[in-house]
Write a protein that binds this DNA or RNA. Sequence first.
DNA 1: AAACTAATTTAGTCCAGACTAATCCGAGGT
DNA 2: ACCTCGGATTAGTCTGGACTAAATTAGTTT
Lengths: 224, 224
Amino acid sequence: MPAPLSQAVEDYLKAVYMLSQEERPVTTNGLAQRLGVAPASVTNMMKRLARLRLVRHEPYRGVTLTEAGQKVALEVIRHHRLLELYLSRALGVSLDRVHGEADRLEHVISEDLEERIAASLGQPDLDPHGDPIPARDGSVTVRTLHPLTAATPGQRGVIARVSDRDDKVVRYLAAAGLLPGVALEVTSTGRRVEVRLEGAPQPRRLTAGLARAIEIVVEEPGAA
Amino acid sequence: MPAPLSQAVEDYLKAVYMLSQEERPVTTNGLAQRLGVAPASVTNMMKRLARLRLVRHEPYRGVTLTEAGQKVALEVIRHHRLLELYLSRALGVSLDRVHGEADRLEHVISEDLEERIAASLGQPDLDPHGDPIPARDGSVTVRTLHPLTAATPGQRGVIARVSDRDDKVVRYLAAAGLLPGVALEVTSTGRRVEVRLEGAPQPRRLTAGLARAIEIVVEEPGAA
DNA sequence: AAACTAATTTAGTCCAGACTAATCCGAGGT
DNA sequence: ACCTCGGATTAGTCTGGACTAAATTAGTTT
């Protein structure tokens, strides 16, 4: 059996996967920034991961995950998102804290525990921020979402995802009731987006940073 | 604020505390064996911990925890035992697996999560093996228990504790129904101990290794 | 095509935590 | 008082994972 992977290795692989979802190619600097680490440290680790056949590293060009590397990344992400949902649902941990807690727990739970958590949640497929939970076999159900920043005035929709990157942002959004599942109408766009929550009389203005953290599913007026 | 302590440091402090409960002085070899590490590594770490004022180290004599060191150890043990109980109760993890799982989780849960777990269990004071869970303030309620190996024939009692050191042993005992809370009568002692469980017609013979893992509270015939 | 710039990689260092091999105490038996 | 022997410590090495400073490369600009 292969030696167990360190927490650091898991973190790097997870970061490569997540960055590759948002921008190609995945750069050294991008990873360094995401991980809060010096670029040289990233290069170093990428060489190690390449030796382990977990990534392909084209010097100066970027990095991609191999099959094996992606498998590890998805496993860690599955842990992370299951834990977020579990902590939120079963223990009432607030939405802005589940991310940090899960970041540490994700590396230490056994497959047995993972499965028990998944079972107790009914094999869910979305975490509390609206991100998909990869299945045990590594498959991910993708939804096509619309960033709130790209909405047009008059559009109605439902919040589908709230980025968990910055817990300050999450804390603010949660306090304002801007959570996955909440219906809203976009009343004005531009530098700042204005939305009116379902049932609320007043629209509410969001800073660019807040709006960027939200994605919605647009309501089809006459969908089947 | 002091730098956060590494997992290794927490493990060593926990081991010092637990060993000191069973034998004085706490020796380098004892720790090495307990931690599955070479004696030289222990000496090394003890010097580091002494510099951090977490232990007092008398070279060639042994080691004791300082106030600060004991506080850390009890905190980790509290985490460990709360987690064991939680995993067992809330997620149905089997008794022989909770220990290993908790050994990894104990280092990564926040104080907030610790408190939520404790609350959801009703601030318990015993873990599923019958070991006391230290309170938040570091106080530990000690019970006087009798090792099964020291019992005399005819004594009746209730299993109060099952050592979690060796999960093979725990697995066996759990399968045999020898768990905390179970009433029994000691039918014969010596090299091998024989006990009859409450309601069982046949006594059951235990190897020395199994008997050593069990402690009981002896039934007072006419207690007030 | 040459030069500049920003990103990347290399080179060298550090610390934590483990190891082995060699040395050193200290307690008990003579 | 001395020797011996097992436990403890020192000395030296290794690996993982981080850092800074210096060198290199790719892409853009002129």
